[in-house]
Amino acid sequence: MLVSLSRAMLALAFAAGMSCCFITAVAAQSLKKMTLVQMHPIMGIGEEVFLYAVPKRLGYFAAEGLDLDIQNSQTGMISAQVLQSNNAQVGTTAAAAVMTVREQGADLVSFFNLKRNAGTFLVVLKDSPIQKLEDLKGKTVGAPSFGAGGGLALKQNLNEIGITPDQYTGISTGAGPSAIAALRSGQIDALVMWDAMLGAAENTGLALRVVNIPLEDRMVGTTLATRKSFASTNTKELAGYCRAMTKGLVFTTANRAAAIRMFWDEFPTTKPATLDDPTALKHSVHIMDRFLEKALQDQPEGARLGEFIKANWENTHAAYVKLGTLKGAEAATDSYTEQVLAACNDFDRAAIVAQANSMGR
């Protein structure tokens, strides 16, 4: 009798275990697969921390019924093309790229304003006499490129205040250590760099001072985009991704250190191999600080995240029409949609902040 009961209990336990495994397998199979494409080629501290690593590690994607993959591309234009070809369903890109491919017949739209400022800085050595853009007349200025991004914004801003390209020397320095070395040695007087590049330079101990590029405050920063047709037929999935990602942003803002550790767990090769853990974490948190400084610039307390700033979209559109990059065939506001913004923000922020605060720093 005891033997029979034992066998029966074992059978029930086995059946329960198989049932559990079956349910887990079914749940895994039922997750909707989506791909996120990024507009830069290398994984590093920046938006990928909260766009992907944090929501994946904390189960935010799974809670929305999603299985996310991530891939990189070279530029915002390439990521826009990847989205339009349906090789990815959501992705980071530039507003100008969205506008450009739309004029070519694509149906891309931005659904979340990822950065309220483009995140580029003009920097000088701390003891430099340069205090404002007008002081660049007769100086040598470096930038990764003067045909796009912060370099282009600086060029346009200088033109606005009456300083033409023949009144300063512009050098395309790229974005690597050699650009910073050129500033340090005095080969250039000022350098345009983006947030992560600035944070990394400061982590070396280089004392820098930021000179404001006012035009940057009037332009669109990095944006999240999708195809309009995908947004129409997969609204639930798009809203679910956006909500999970926005939770990731709130978490990261509340506890950058915990978010970065999750990022390293997800992408181990991004963790600095030559630094001890406390120093690596300190440096990475500083880079994240620089990113969020511009991404959330002038974000109203308690307001929805990802809101579009209409004037900035119109300014960006007008600037690229003037450059000849855009024909101006449609309104700037056609390039974005607020379709899922309410759903993106539909969660308990206090609960996410509490979760973040419960983890180590």
Rank of each mutant, 00 (worst) to 15 (best):
R102C: 08
E103W: 04
Q104C: 14
A106Y: 14
D107V: 11
L108T: 09
L108H: 03
N113I: 00
L114H: 06
G119T: 09
G119M: 03
T120E: 08
F121C: 11
L122F: 09
L125Q: 11
K126A: 12
P129Q: 00
P129K: 00
K139M: 15
P144Y: 08
P144R: 03
S145W: 11
A148E: 07
G149T: 13
G149W: 02
G151W: 02
G151H: 07
A153D: 09
L154R: 09
L154Q: 13
L154D: 10
N159C: 06
I161F: 12
I163S: 08
P165Y: 06
D166P: 04
Q167N: 04
Q167T: 10
Y168T: 00
Y168W: 12
T169A: 12
G170T: 08
I171P: 02
I171T: 01
I171S: 10
S172P: 10
S172Y: 11
A175C: 13
A175R: 14
A175Q: 12
G176M: 08
G176Y: 12
S178V: 11
A181D: 14
A182L: 13
S185H: 03
S185C: 10
G186W: 02
Q187A: 13
A190Y: 07
A190P: 04
M193E: 15
M193L: 15
A196K: 06
E202V: 05
N203M: 10
L206F: 03
L208P: 02
V210G: 07
V210M: 06
N212H: 15
N212I: 14
D217E: 11
R218W: 02
V220D: 04
G221N: 01
G221I: 01
T222G: 10
T222I: 10
T223A: 02
